[in-house]
Nucleic acid binder design. Sequence first.
DNA 1: AGACGCTTAGTGGTCAGACCACTAGATCGA
DNA 2: TCGATCTAGTGGTCTGACCACTAAGCGTCT
Lengths: 246, 246
Amino acid sequence: MTKDQTVVRPGEAGGQAFERVLRWVDDRILSGELRVGDHLPPERELAKTLGVSRAAVREAVRTFQAQGVVRSAVGAGAAAGTTVTAVPAHALTRLLRLHVALANFPLPDVVEVRISLERLSARLASRHASDDDVDGMRQLLDHMAQPGIEREEFNDADTAFHVAIAASAGNLLAADLTAAMRESMRLPILDRFRRIDGWEHVIDELRHDHEAIYAAITDGQADDAARLVEDHIRRAWQTLGVGAPS
Amino acid sequence: MTKDQTVVRPGEAGGQAFERVLRWVDDRILSGELRVGDHLPPERELAKTLGVSRAAVREAVRTFQAQGVVRSAVGAGAAAGTTVTAVPAHALTRLLRLHVALANFPLPDVVEVRISLERLSARLASRHASDDDVDGMRQLLDHMAQPGIEREEFNDADTAFHVAIAASAGNLLAADLTAAMRESMRLPILDRFRRIDGWEHVIDELRHDHEAIYAAITDGQADDAARLVEDHIRRAWQTLGVGAPS
DNA sequence: AGACGCTTAGTGGTCAGACCACTAGATCGA
DNA sequence: TCGATCTAGTGGTCTGACCACTAAGCGTCT
């Protein structure tokens, strides 16, 4: 029994080594001491400071990386090291996609939440969409309008269209959540696309819906845009979810 | 230049070692091969299988842990090892809280999204809330009704009340997101609570709002509940955001 | 025969120390 | 002056070891 510092000392240590690192960084972010663009101390130094191994520090860094909160880069100079960032979109997408795949979030639930968010996005986009935003949507619509387009290609453009609306909403959280939500449904939707019989009919319906949404947004008709988006998602989901028509 | 296997071989390796582990687990979750309750191989075995070090495996596991997708436990037997789980609430909360603290998601944006989600939650709760759910809300309301309650205690009960509504909605995603959203605003709101002058007046207004929401939910008035929740959040936010009255 | 206690194997948690790949900037040379 | 080279500091990775914990097997004692 030579150990006397491995014993849990609530006042200072507290649980796992890598959690000490988590808390150290957490505290500094929540208190505003660490801001976007700031550097974390080098791993070796942080390990020494907190009295843990470098491996523990790295595990904690991976945690923050998974949350889109830091970015690591090798090399020397200002660009190198571990930097505080704020790119949650990817992290949110990953998280939702995994949990959707685990059937923890049933698709009908996701659809319902998605409707809420996309209603908001469409409403905001009607007011804030810039000319560039509108151009981007137009291009996606034209792309989806190509005759004989493959289902996967259409699905990607469809996803991009909904994401474009969210991105132009001027509300980053709504945009990121909407994008993550639609992205997390990409595979399940594509699966259903592949199984569908009346593909040509379905795709025409989708195109029509999209055009109407586009028109409402460019006209600044927020209420219409919200309603059309909801109808669109519900209709599409019913078509895809229940099964192929006829 | 003796290295010849460290060179990037896109077909098999591909980037960082721990990313290989990420992809391995990702693939198996997205394909449905790994389901909730299943075990990952032991770290040592997985490391050997993928040709990486155990440290790389651990970093990847931390990533999934941060997303609420796996749970690790030491020991022997069926309960030990790394298990696939699905507890995204904590992960979502952490993620949002950090990004809100980094001011990546401005509070007004969060409020707007929160309104959308809580409208949905309130609407669903009006239809699905069980007797137990209602009891829980009632207790929280009674707790908040205590005269002379501390601001922090009130804030916690307030958070819990909104979370309780979300939890009774029967839509896990909406519930988790709503909870994460409100939780991520806990500190900022508490800060504003502390700065407020007309505290007694404010708290009475909040109590009144809550009672009205509670009544609408228990009466099954979905539209009313949604409207009341929106009004409540907007009013509270205006009171807290703009500054103390008079 | 049963209940209790000990041993054991296998798991994640942690650590120390080493080397590699990469990069910006300093240094040195033509 | 400008280019090539060197250097220091960073994250990325690996190895091999030990610790703490837990369930289950095994034994002994009652």
